[in-house]
Amino acid sequence: MMKLTRKLFNRTSLLPFSLAALACVATLPNQAYAWEPTKPVEVIIPAGAGGASDQMARTIQGIVVKHQLMKQPMLIINKGGASGAEGIMDVKDSKGNPHKLMVAFSAIYTLPIAVNLPFNWRDLNPVAMIASDEFLLWVNSDTPYKTAKEYLDAAKKANGAFKMGGTGSKREDHIITVALDKIAGAKFTYIPYKSGGEAATQLVGKHIDSNVNNPSENIAQWRAGQVRALCVFSEQRMVYKDKITKDQSWADIPTCKESGVDVQYQMLRAFFLPGGTTADQAAYYAELLKKVTATPEWKDYVAKQALKEVYLTGADFVKFLEKDEAFHNKLMHEAGFAAKK
């Protein structure tokens, strides 16, 4: 038994090194980086194991290993305490460490506002944005509502009796709920759960009336016909045309705007280095992520999770961040989520 274990260990720890050397010659013939990692790279996930950010990072890790894209190993570390503040502060405090990457989502804007966290994304070195995640309005399929309009009208009539579930408090799901309240005049009772998975289960069990989960958080229940997607909070419909349920694909879901509820929200999925790192270092990881996003495994993953493919780096990425930050700032203050100073 121990022999087998050892064999397995050897395979994992030694093979990548020797093969990576070979692979470098084979796949990257003329590529010379201004900088390359010299130590194992830690990827900090400011979220718990098993969530959407975690899955994405582990998929990328798998792709990097499989295609020998990096000579050094990649370690995934979950620091999901305090809605991600734990991981964000850890990366902020690792000034000048080029062997630490952070997976970012909208918490980088909302947390500083909601709890006075002494953090701003400008404290970090932006590497690249690789996708954005959609949000949808879901109801239990036993309910009669077929469109967002019908559902929100009913919610308005119920005057506070409808329950909306979501992940955490004063975060993206909560922001969308408040925006819906404003535009549609509905008064949802927002119930915060620990994860999107929990919110999905609670919707199937009819403990809540709706949720605004990401596609990946509700896809299983959708396919099984337990929940119904009413609309997507985005400018355009999603692009994936393969049938997911018996008769619907992601592209068949109307936007909320089409249904007369103009609420739009998307969440970035991006990578950052700690502050004090160089442009060369950021460029290395941006290039690495570019290669990752070109693999068939990544295309497959993106399609399954119905992520919107966006690749932004350098000045474009910074411009996006500034705009997105201002957007969140406005939403958070309008919703009354800003902490008392």
Binding site: F9, T12, S13, T38, K39, P40, E42, P73, L75, I77
Partner: peptide, 19 residues
């Protein structure tokens, strides 16, 4: 460090070996 890939606090000696 090598098998479970769990980074623990390291000092100057480990840095000598490139960790």
């Amino acid at each position: 460090e090598m098998q479970f890939l769990v980074p623990l606090p390291k000092g100057p000696l480990e840095a000598l070996f490139g960790y």
